[in-house]
Computed example of a mutant assay.
Amino acid sequence: MSHTEELLAQIDAAVNDWTVSGDAMRCRPTAEPSPVPAVPVVRFTGRDRARAALVSRLVDRGLEPAAAHAAVRAAENGEPTEHAQLVAAEARAAVGETVQQLGEVMRAFARALHPIAEAAAAVMRQLDEALRSASHTTGRGRHRDRPAWQSPYGPPARRKR
Results as ranks from 00 to 15, higher is better:
His3Gly: 03
His3Asp: 08
Glu5Tyr: 00
Glu6Met: 15
Leu8Trp: 07
Leu8Gly: 05
Ala9His: 03
Ala14His: 06
Val15Met: 14
Thr19Asp: 03
Val20Tyr: 05
Val20Arg: 15
Ser21Val: 09
Gly22Thr: 12
Asp23Leu: 11
Ala24Arg: 12
Met25Gln: 06
Met25Ser: 05
Arg26Lys: 14
Cys27Lys: 15
Arg28Glu: 08
Pro29Tyr: 02
Ala31Pro: 02
Ala31Met: 11
Glu32Ala: 14
Pro33Thr: 14
Pro37Gly: 12
Ala38Leu: 13
Val39Met: 10
Pro40Ser: 12
Val42Thr: 10
Arg43Val: 13
Phe44Pro: 00
Gly46Glu: 13
Arg51Asn: 06
Arg51Asp: 04
Ala53Trp: 00
Ala53Val: 11
Val55Lys: 01
Ser56Cys: 07
Arg57Ile: 02
Leu58Phe: 01
Val59Leu: 05
Asp60Trp: 05
Glu64Met: 15
Pro65Arg: 15
Pro65Asp: 02
Ala66Gln: 03
His69Ser: 11
Ala70Thr: 09
Ala71Val: 10
Asn77Trp: 01
Gly78Arg: 00
Gly78Thr: 05
Gly78Asp: 04
Gly78Trp: 06
Thr81Tyr: 00
Ala84Asn: 03
Ala84Arg: 10
Ala84Thr: 15
Gln85Ile: 13
Leu86Gly: 03
Leu86Lys: 04
Val87Thr: 08
Glu90Asn: 06
Ala91His: 04
Ala91Pro: 00
Arg92Thr: 11
Val95Gly: 02
Val95Cys: 03
Gly96Leu: 07
Glu97Asn: 08
Val99Ser: 08
Val99Arg: 15
Gln101Glu: 05
Gln101His: 07
Leu102His: 11
Val105Ala: 13
Arg111Asp: 14
Arg111Lys: 09
Pro115Arg: 04
Glu118Tyr: 08
Ala119Ser: 08
Ala120Gln: 10
Ala121Tyr: 14
Ala122His: 14
Met124Arg: 15
Arg125Asn: 08
Arg125Tyr: 07
Gln126Trp: 14
Gln126Asn: 13
Gln126Met: 09
Asp128Glu: 13
Asp128Lys: 10
Glu129Pro: 00
Glu129Cys: 14
Glu129Ile: 10
Ala130Asn: 08
Arg132Gln: 14
Ser133Ala: 15
Ser133Pro: 13
Ala134Pro: 00
Ala134Leu: 14
Ala134Lys: 10
Ser135Met: 11
Thr137His: 06
Thr138Glu: 02
Ala148Ser: 11
Ala148Trp: 12
Ala148Leu: 15
Ser151Gln: 07
Pro152Glu: 01
Pro152Val: 05
Tyr153Glu: 10
Tyr153Ile: 04
Pro155Gly: 08
Pro156Ala: 03
Arg161Asn: 03
